[in-house]
Amino acid sequence: MSERLRVNPIKCTAHGMCAELLPEFITLDPWGYPIVPGEPVPDDLIGLARKAAAACPTLALLVDKGRRR
């Protein structure tokens, strides 16, 4: 099963923690907000992705399981 990352933009306060933990996948926009690709997280990064989601201070980073966006 593939996992995708999604940001709740209302909760996200641009801490940037997620991009620090997962620079291979998450980049920051000019205002410090994460740009998360819509594609599934590559297998070798899933562990880190879950860690990044857990580390987000506002719980704005979500791991979606399954096929849907």
């Binding site: 933009p9 209302i10 996200c12 926009d29 205002w31 410090g32 907000y33």
Partner: peptide, 9 residues
């Protein structure tokens, strides 16, 4: 005024 990309973008 809730989402960064909307507030700044």
């Amino acid at each position: 005024g809730q989402c960064g990309p909307c507030i700044f973008g």
